[in-house]
Nucleic acid binder design. Structure first.
Length: 596
DNA sequence: GTAGGGTTAG
């Protein structure tokens, strides 16, 4: 047993206590540690020690956490709080899984000192770790431990558990935890909402949000939705492109007085941008006071301008960023994307060369695309070869795409070989390669690609589109007849076909790679999901109303031509959000200037 | 042993 603290030791401890909040560098911490040790306070003042450990373990310095672990291991009888401090540090570290090892006692010295008891806090930190590693099974194990410990009535802990399940992709378990909680508060709701929104169930998130917003003021006050709720809902709207719900969420934010919150504003910018309303996004951005704007405000707005093809404005805003805000990798990705979509090759290269953060795969992807589109294929290839890390599948697909665009057989073959090496087996790769051969009339090679496709059991990435009519989402898959009104839709498409043929439309069948005749290829094209969605929009909305469509893949060349012609023939503005950007069709023109 | 731990945007 440590000897009881003498009065001088007590005075020293009190002095250290007041010093604790002032520590900043690792060297401070080491000196503090030495004094704790020298004065014997390390053992007589466990609470001071634990708080010291806690701060040390979270210090952003590579040697801080190892030092904290060393200290923990040196304790003859660590307390729960000492363990918790280390768990917390490990969970937030680059190797969160190590906190699970510690929890299992595997990081403590072998002739085991008495193992500290676990408490709710230990599990809370461990659950943070399993969430960060997306380890659903470990989350389940912690769930079992937490029940055995008898802390399953702790609302905050159960919220962490719910959040962890959701972040591991196990939405069913997250939902179950939520349903079985007898007491919830707003954070519990928010965790579920955010989990659904960012997982595979943004639609369900919206259903829940509508209910929550509708029963507002009937709930116990601790469950009242707050600005976090709004942010989660807006994130679901953004993903879905659900403008109606987004507007409703904005209105709700006003009623609870959350529109002054920067995070809410940032989410609004993103939501409006992804729902096709650039003007509303910009309006929100300008409504934020200059000094309140954060990096995310700029990133979201630059991204909005880029997605809508306003590369020049994106560059301008980038240049206007106040000095207090350092651009990060997201900023650069957004600006580069803007240059790419607007064909600003030199600007893009200039920004890329001036980057103040290390470019990642996506930055290289954008610049390769930019150079490749501009026909500077050798430079694009060179860029890939001189990257500090090996190119991934997406990057080679990018190169293949631009090689096809410029009919460069050598580079297309090279990219296709790399793709095969990397195990990519999607139809798009084959279609592009085959098209390069076809453009040179190398039919033998076209046939070879087709044979490989057949023998390789090629995966087809299913394309779908949807459009919102009166607040209801209508989803279409290529050639499907699932919709209640499919007969009308197909009839409308036939009518559209003859109307646009008068404007000189010829089907662009080169993107169809099936062993079928020309007529069937045309058929395969005419019922692309985006065409079904546009046709449905046309027959379900009054003349003159804007038609908004969202598609999960890039829009195909033929659909792009058709959308332009429909906009002219029917006097409609059509806005299509594809995987990468927006296309706004009006009077026969597209905002992308056919460069995408 | 007083608290500490939960949810949010690009």
């Amino acid at each position: 047993m440590p000897s009881p603290p003498t009065s001088t030791a007590a005075a020293a401890a009190q002095q250290l206590e007041s010093l604790l909040p002032l520590l900043s560098t690792l060297s401070h911490y080491k000196q503090f540690h030495a004094r704790l040790h020298a004065l014997g306070t390390l053992h007589s003042y466990p609470s001071l020690r634990a708080r010291f450990l806690d701060r040390l373990a979270l210090l952003p310095h590579a040697d801080a956490l190892p030092h904290a672990l060393l200290l923990l291991r040196s304790l003859p009888s660590p307390a729960t709080n000492d363990l918790n401090a280390a768990l917390r540090g490990l969970a937030a570290s680059p190797h969160p899984a190590r906190s699970l090892l510690l929890l299992a006692g595997r990081l403590l010295p072998a002739p085991a000192p008495p193992r500290p008891r676990l408490d709710a806090l230990s599990l809370s930190f461990a659950l943070k770790a399993t969430a960060r590693c997306s380890d659903a099974f470990a989350t389940l194990q912690l769930h079992a431990i937490l029940v055995r410990l008898g802390v399953a009535a702790d609302v905050r802990l159960m919220t962490t558990l719910l959040d962890s399940y959701a972040k591991c992709g196990d939405l069913a378990s997250a939902r179950k935890v939520f349903d079985e909680m007898s007491v919830r508060d707003v954070a519990t709701w928010n965790a579920l909402l955010a989990g659904l929104a960012q997982g595979t169930e943004p639609n369900l998130a919206l259903v829940l949000f509508r209910r929550l917003a509708g029963s507002f003021r009937e709930l116990p006050p601790r469950e009242d939705p707050n600005e976090v709720t709004v942010v989660a809902a807006l994130s679901a709207c953004a993903q879905l492109g659900a403008l109606k719900d987004g507007l409703a969420a904005h209105e709700f934010a006003r009623t609870i007085g959350a529109v002054g919150n920067v995070r809410v504003c940032n989410s609004l910018i993103d939501m409006y941008s992804k729902c096709g309303s650039l003007s509303r996004a910009l309006e929100v951005f300008h409504s934020i006071k200059l000094e309140d704007r954060t990096l995310v405000s700029y990133n979201a707005t630059i991204q909005a301008l880029s997605m809508h093809g306003h590369g020049e404005d994106a560059l301008k805003l980038f240049d206007e960023m106040p000095a207090r805000i350092e651009p990060d990798e997201v900023t650069y990705l957004a600006v580069l994307g803007g240059c790419n979509h607007a064909g600003l090759v030199d600007d893009g290269c200039r920004v890329f060369d001036s980057m103040r953060v290390a470019p990642n795969m996506k930055h290289y992807g954008t610049i390769v695309d930019l150079l490749g589109r501009a026909g500077r294929l050798a430079e694009a290839h060179d860029m890939i070869m001189h990257m500090p890390f090996p190119a991934d599948i997406v990057l080679w697909q990018t190169l293949l795409g631009t090689a096809k665009m410029h009919g460069n057989v050598d580079l297309a073959e090279l990219a296709a070989t790399k793709l095969a090496d990397l195990g990519s087996n999607v139809d798009g790769d084959y279609v592009l390669l085959s098209n390069v051969y076809a453009s040179k009339s190398w039919w033998v090679d076209v046939g070879r690609v087709r044979d490989t496709m057949r023998s390789n059991d090629v995966k087809k990435v299913p394309g779908f589109s949807y459009t919102e009519i009166d607040g209801v989402m209508h989803k279409f898959i290529n050639g499907d007849k699932e919709h209640m009104r499919w007969r009308e839709i197909y009839r409308a498409l036939d009518e559209i076909g003859s109307r646009i043929c008068e404007l000189g439309y010829e089907p662009e069948t080169s993107n169809v790679l099936h062993d079928i005749g020309e007529e069937e290829k045309q058929y395969a094209l005419s019922y692309h999901s985006e065409k079904l969605a546009i046709a449905f929009g046309l027959i379900s909305t009054p003349p003159g109303e804007t038609i908004r469509v969202i598609k999960n893949l890039r829009i195909c060349g033929d659909c792009h031509v058709v959308a332009k012609l429909i906009s002219k023939a029917y006097g409609r503005v059509i806005i299509i959000r594809d995987r990468a950007r927006f296309h706004r069709f009006e009077d026969g023109q597209c905002s992308c200037r056919d460069y995408w």
